[in-house]
Amino acid sequence: MAAPLSIEIPKTPVAYFVPAEAERLGSAIGELRRTLGEHAYLVLASDKLSPAWIQRAITLGADDVVDPTSAEDVAICLARTSRAIERARGAQTEQACLAMERDYLQACIDNLPAPIFFKNSEGIYVGCNGAFAEFIGSPPEGVIGRSVYDVAPEALAQRYQAADDELLERGGTQVYESEVCHSGGTRRHVMFHKAAIKGGDGRVRGIAGAILDITERKTLEARLTEAAERDPLTNAYNRRKFFDLAEQMVQQARDDDKTLAVAVIDVDHFKLINDRLGHAEGDNALRMIAGTLEKTVGKGNVIARAGGEEFYALFIDGSINEAKQTADRMRMEVERICQATALSALAGTVSIGLAAFRPREENLDEALKRADDALYRAKNSGRNRLCVAA
């Protein structure tokens, strides 16, 4: 009887008798094993094999060797075969149960909206849900068996891998914020929740992770931060933000023993704009002037609306002469921009008081007071000019 092309474990054991030539016994055993697979229990029946050949037959792939002329030997072989078949059947049942549990688990996580993934200790994806595949724009089969470097841009992949390495090293859980390249081509802000997976021996075998998309929350936070820092009318920094930034800049200048300069800027004849053109036009004037000041204040310097029609400016990394040149350029640019509007007949200029100060010798409030005194001199001298404090 010829051997079948393949075999599955039947409910009732089936025996196949396949003749084999002694001259090519080794290749015959190998061919049978390759054909039948590991489920078959391969018994070599011969009464002419030496102990050396019996050992060789086992090495080549036979499960057992029996002398067919010995009833006792055949009985013992049948008992071993029966136990092997039962073990194989039990293993097959267990594998079927595991497959069912795996399918159930996959169905469960596929119905969760949060992207979920699993990696082994080598950083290779061994599982994910549909939400994760959809999130990164790759089908599950394009994720499984790959590393993070295959599914994410290199810069982001390096960040993820560093976090994974740290988690695999110490175990436990890990929560952190990062960016993810979404399938739509946009960057999304996310929060990773990861946990090290331990085996029965207590050793870390991999990582389970979930992704929470927090883009909308981060956008709202940015808007709230901007609302807290910006003047709602002009969109310039507000007074509180000015002093927050100034505190950092003053501390740095104090550490480096550098000189700073501070300016107080006031719109000339602003009351006339409100009285003759209306408050709406006055608001437009403030927005236009604030935008002009912000464009011309210079990189690294700070401009903010102090209140009403008054602004503060702080100049870093320069002498008083450089600060004076920048401040006067701001004044002239405001005048130039306003010349093209109805403001030119009423106002459309600013007066500026400027004061240099050394943070190791004087605080910001004292410097602002001297700049404010210089502003009043500019106002009393005819407006649309800059005065430097002594």
Rank of each mutant, 00 (worst) to 15 (best):
A2L: 13
L5M: 09
S6Q: 12
V14L: 01
Y16A: 00
R24M: 02
R24C: 04
I29A: 06
E31Y: 05
E38F: 05
H39V: 11
V43M: 14
D47K: 05
S50N: 10
A52I: 15
W53D: 10
I54Q: 13
G61S: 08
D67E: 06
P68E: 03
I76C: 01
S82D: 10
A88S: 07
R89G: 05
R102W: 01
N111D: 10
A114Q: 14
F117V: 06
F118C: 15
G127M: 00
A131R: 01
E134A: 15
S138Y: 00
E141H: 13
G145I: 05
Y149V: 01
E154I: 11
L156Q: 14
Y160P: 13
T173A: 05
Q174I: 00
H182R: 07
R188E: 09
K198S: 07
V204K: 04
R217F: 07
E221I: 02
R223A: 07
A228D: 10
D231K: 00
P232K: 02
P232S: 04
L233C: 09
L245W: 03
L245V: 03
Q252D: 09
R254Q: 03
L260V: 06
L260K: 12
D266E: 14
H269P: 13
I273R: 06
D275G: 00
R276Q: 09
R276W: 01
L277R: 02
K299I: 03
R305E: 00
Y312E: 01
A313H: 08
S319A: 06
R329M: 10
E335S: 09
A342E: 11
A342W: 06
L346V: 03
G348A: 03
T349G: 13
A356P: 05
F357C: 06
R360S: 11
D365T: 13
D365Y: 10
A367F: 02
A371Q: 03
K379P: 08
G382A: 01
R383E: 10
